[in-house]
Simulated scan of single mutants.
Amino acid sequence: MDNIQNKIEDASKKVADTVESATNKVEETILKAKDALPEVTPTPPGLKPQSSVSDLKARLEWGEPALTILDVRDRDTFNNGHIMGAMPMPLEELVDRAKTSLQPTRDIYVYGESDEQTAQAASQMRSAGFQCVSELKGGFPAWKAVGGPTEGVAESTNPPGPEGYNVLSEVKNEANKPKANM
Rank of each mutant, 00 (worst) to 15 (best):
D74Q: 13
R75K: 08
T77Q: 07
T77N: 09
F78Q: 10
N79R: 15
N79E: 15
N79H: 12
I83T: 10
M84E: 10
M84Y: 01
A86T: 04
A86K: 02
A86D: 06
M87V: 09
P88T: 07
P90T: 06
L91R: 03
E93Y: 10
D96Q: 10
D96E: 12
R97T: 06
R97L: 08
A98Y: 00
T100L: 13
T100V: 03
S101Q: 08
S101V: 00
S101C: 00
T105N: 11
R106W: 07
R106A: 06
D107V: 05
I108V: 14
V110R: 03
Y111T: 05
Y111P: 02
E113P: 03
E113T: 10
S114N: 09
D115N: 11
Q117F: 02
Q117A: 08
A119G: 09
A119Q: 14
Q120P: 00
A121Q: 04
A122V: 08
S123H: 10
Q124P: 02
M125K: 02
R126Y: 01
S127Q: 15
A128E: 06
A128I: 05
A128W: 04
Q131M: 12
C132Y: 05
C132N: 12
C132K: 08
S134V: 05
E135P: 00
K137L: 09
G138I: 00
G138T: 00
G139T: 09
F140V: 01
F140D: 01
A142L: 05
W143P: 03
W143E: 06
A145Y: 14
V146I: 15
P149V: 04
T150D: 08
T150Y: 06
E151K: 13
G152A: 11
G152V: 09
V153T: 13
E155R: 13
S156C: 13
S156G: 10
T157H: 15
T157L: 15
Y165P: 02
N166Q: 12
S169N: 01
V171C: 07
K172N: 06
E174F: 02
E174V: 02
A175G: 01
N176W: 04
N176Y: 04
K177V: 00
